[in-house]
């Protein structure tokens, strides 16, 4: 949607571009100072032995921080937990449950639909820290879940202790599903009813119709949603911190928590920022995969 004028000269075009781009100013300054600046600083600090205490100054140590990380079992463990947490709670949990809810809601009774979406959105609107405490209580030794299990004669257990990564994943599904549900509800509402109905008339079963008609029509929304929730989940900190603080014995320590522990609690700024860089890289890899999928769509 270019607003083209009559063939302006080079300086004129440059001047006009500047005026047109001016509204970007405040955002660019904020992003530059508070986001890009710290990231560049990160890039520098990750290659030094900078520490919060000591005051000996920072020395360039090359790739030592990264070598140290990849040789450390704790780091590798936190890497695995990060991927498990993202896969379980975002890519499978929030994504599938959000889709299922959105699909079911299309053919449900109006008041049930309204009530269910109010409840699911209610969970989403809860602040992260509150969600953490609610789930700590729910999964606790004497919590509601164990009472429910007791009713059906299943052995109770301390979920936060025995399977902490599953516990925080469940909490994250609870908290984040509404986002996917809203995205998919909106996307599904734009699928023309006629197309689905003609598929039904042609003899397609519900599952077949869903798989080969409905889902392909909203695939762009699916890809974009997957990217957003993956990135959101990779950076979850408060929820896990309030529920387990990464414990017991680091069994729910995802990368953000591990980096925080190293940088702030153990005062190893250089090492901590190197870990943070790894986290940024993982986010970048996921993004590239999804963007590639979107671009392939564009090329069709």
């Amino acid at each position: 949607m270019t607003v083209s004028a009559t063939q302006p000269g080079a300086t004129e075009r440059w001047r006009r571009g500047l005026i047109q781009g001016m509204p970007l100013g405040p955002a660019v300054v904020l992003l530059g100072v508070f986001l890009a600046g710290p990231i560049l600083y990160c890039l520098y600090a990750a290659f030094t032995d900078m520490a919060l205490t000591g005051g000996t100054g920072a020395h360039f140590v090359g790739l030592d921080n990264f070598r140290k990380a990849f040789e450390s079992p704790e780091f590798r463990q936190s890497l695995v937990y990060t991927l498990v947490f993202t896969l379980l709670s975002a890519i499978i949990g929030q994504n599938v449950l959000g889709m299922v809810l959105a699909l079911l809601m299309r053919s449900s009774t109006a008041w049930i639909r309204a009530t269910v979406s109010a409840i699911v959105i209610g969970a989403w609107v809860m602040p992260e820290v509150v969600a953490g405490y609610l789930w700590t209580a729910f999964l606790g030794d004497d919590g509601s879940l164990n009472h429910l299990l007791g009713m059906v004669h299943l052995p109770p257990q301390d979920w936060l202790f025995s399977v902490p990564i599953l516990a925080v994943s469940l909490a994250n599904i609870w908290r984040g599903t509404a986002f996917s549900m809203l995205v998919y509800s909106a996307a599904l509402s734009e699928v023309p009813k006629e197309i689905e109905e003609s598929a039904t008339v042609d003899g397609a079963g519900t599952v077949q119709r869903l798989w080969s008609v409905t889902l392909p029509m909203i695939r762009r929304s699916i890809t974009t949603n997957l990217m957003l929730i993956t990135l959101q989940t990779l950076s979850v900190f408060g929820l896990i911190w309030t529920m387990t603080r990464g414990g017991p014995s680091n069994h729910s320590t995802t990368l953000p928590l591990f980096a925080y522990q190293q940088a702030f609690q153990l005062s190893q700024l250089g090492y901590g920022t190197a870990l943070a860089l790894v986290l940024l890289a993982i986010g970048a890899v996921f993004s590239l995969v999804y963007l590639r999928a979107l671009r392939l769509e564009d090329g069709r």
């Binding site: 710290p38 990231i39 600083y41 950076s235 953000p256 980096a259 986290l279 940024l280 986010g283």
Partner: peptide, 11 residues
């Protein structure tokens, strides 16, 4: 949008 804020809190 997905930038882990934890990653840049130190700097």
């Amino acid at each position: 949008t997905g930038l882990p804020i934890t990653a840049i809190m130190v700097p």
